[in-house]
Design a protein around this nucleic acid. Structure first.
Lengths: 341, 341
DNA sequence: ATGAAAGCGCTAACAC
DNA sequence: GTGTTAGCGCTTTCAT
């Protein structure tokens, strides 16, 4: 067993209270003679005394530990760099404050509250929170501060803070870029499985707005909801008078379209321009490299961490929410519209 | 404050001991009347009782929490995918066992023992452990099981398990590949700053062995120790009768050489073949794509996690250490040696 | 079948 | 200045 404060006290010939004061007392409160203090420190070192954090935490109910929930963790299909960047951004803020980051195994919403309310965590950064009544209830009942990342602000949920990117603005940049290249007929593609996620919905809405804002015609067939493998691409590509550019709701979907296009003998960007969303390094690996809207994940995570710390100190989440602007990374999958001869 | 077992007991009209038995008692030991058990469960739900993990852990000294130490965390320069893959591999083993993964802020070796010995962690996966007397001492004194990842087995440290890749074998594959392409004069490049890391040293040794094994001449000038930016490349490239291929100790260094070569007007792979080490997706992003030795990071991390679990259950680390074989991912930075006209 | 009581290791309010 | 004491919330003998 590890050395306890009791053993240190005994060996130093003082009470455990005195040991505690010397070893952890705040500067001002140390009302202990210098000599005894010295002895105690000496004995503690000799005995390799290491305070038991569990006991301390139980006593003080402060753990210096924040949780991170990755929904759908099993699979780096979300873009391998999302988690890395997220972790990096959060760590840069949390580590200097001596906070630990704990990744939770429990993604089951049914017992997540047990995990979040067991006293181990002071707060949690929760990524890609869905917008369902069930989740709203969770937010309501969660006993520790929540910062939702990559989740658009959720009016009903005043207990949580929200850090997100400007999905609509990002899509507007994409549309803008394509328009400047001469494209007029643009298709927005989302995935069935993710169609109801807040990000997907916001991007869809942004698409419609962007099209309308530019006075272009917006029709139902300008939106496609395809399956995970985007099988429907093949049907689309056969259609007469098809769109000249595609905006995919994610970078994964964008990349999948590039693959499908290559298989179908459609040359990107010559015969078709494609834009994705996220713009991690993953977009550098596609052929051609994928033009994509970028969200500053690490920065967002850093902000989420700061926000969480503020909430832990008792500040209200209300004015802490923040939406980051997106930018556009132009790569090789977009080109000027070819003028028909 | 959160509901405590006391409140549940009071409201249910029983003692806290009974509540504890009903809620957490092992199946066999439940010697409580069915009716009372039912009431207790009912009350617990009503009151939204969530057991305090800290108290439980303090009592049982089991936390279901393992630590992860990333040396040099600040910076994804180690290859952005290293951490992701590592985390993924470890999580796949740990999460189903209901273990949490905690990333430690404390990379300062001076007080790391305080972090590891404070009772919060049952074990730790420690990546890229250096091979110094100081670290050996740390391993010796660490109160919880350690699995060292990406650290070659360390004969003196019988308290820890080691999960590593076969650095030497990996380099041998690289040399083999180059030889098959006709190369005979190969340069091994390592970085000054990392020259003393176990990985770097093992790869260097592997290089010498591989060269000798094939009956090629091995000279001192076949090894270069360059700075972080590999400035010395420019001097090397000017030298008469220079090597026709380079093996870099890391993928970062390999990529840097590609950049330097492009700047110097040296065409890769036509005028120079380059191989790196690690082979994450990063190698797909270089120009040209970097041929590299691959180590199965996620698999290794999974094994490390299993090993840690075994050690936590009391097994000896001795026969748990394991070295994974490497493979070679041939991409576009290597080509047959051009025959001089 | 149920409860009383003794801690796990520590902190902090209060005595002296 | 220093020690005594009362818990933090829980588990676990050991009585009854």
């Amino acid at each position: 067993m590890a050395t306890t404060i009791r053993e240190v006290a005994d060996k130093a010939g003082v009470s455990i209270a005195t040991v505690s004061k010397v070893l952890h007392g705040r500067a001002g409160n140390i009302r202990v003679s210098t000599e005894k203090a010295e002895i105690i420190r000496q004995v503690a070192k000799e005995l390799q005394y290491r305070p038991n954090a569990l006991a301390r935490q139980l006593r003080s109910s402060r753990t210096h530990n924040v949780g991170l929930i990755f929904e759908n963790f099993n699979g780096i299909s979300d873009g391998p760099l999302y988690y890395t960047n997220l972790l990096d951004g959060a760590a840069r803020v949390l580590f200097p404050q001596h906070y630990r980051i704990t990744i939770l195994p429990e993604i089951d919403h049914a017992n997540i509250l047990g995990s979040l309310g067991d006293g181990q965590l002071e707060g949690v950064i929760w990524c890609k929170l869905a917008r369902t009544p069930e989740v709203l209830k969770l937010i309501h009942e969660c006993p520790i501060p929540i910062v939702a990342m990559n989740t658009p602000p959720y009016p009903g949920a005043t207990e949580a803070a929200f850090v997100s990117c400007d999905n609509e603005g990002g899509i507007d940049l994409a549309v803008q870029h394509l328009c400047e290249l001469g494209h007029r007929r643009i298709l927005f593609v989302r995935e069935e499985e993710e169609a109801l996620t807040p990000d997907s919905m916001a991007r869809l809405k942004g698409f419609e707005n962007a099209i309308r804002r530019r006075g272009l015609r917006f029709e139902l067939q300008d939106i496609a909801t395809w399956n995970w493998d985007l099988d429907q691409f093949d049907t689309w590509v056969e259609s007469k008078d098809r769109h000249t550019a595609i905006i995919a709701w994610s970078e994964r979907a964008g990349a999948q379209i590039l693959k499908r296009a290559a298989l179908a003998g459609v040359s990107v960007p010559n015969d078709l321009s494609v834009i994705g969303f996220d713009s991690t390094q993953f977009c550098e690996t596609t052929k051609p490299r994928l033009t994509a809207v970028r969200q500053p994940i690490a920065e967002m995570a850093g902000h989420a961490a700061k926000t969480l710390l503020a909430m832990i100190s008792g500040e209200s989440p209300q004015q802490l929410s923040f939406t980051f602007p997106c930018t556009l990374d132009v790569r090789d999958s977009t080109a000027p519209l070819k003028v028909e001869a």
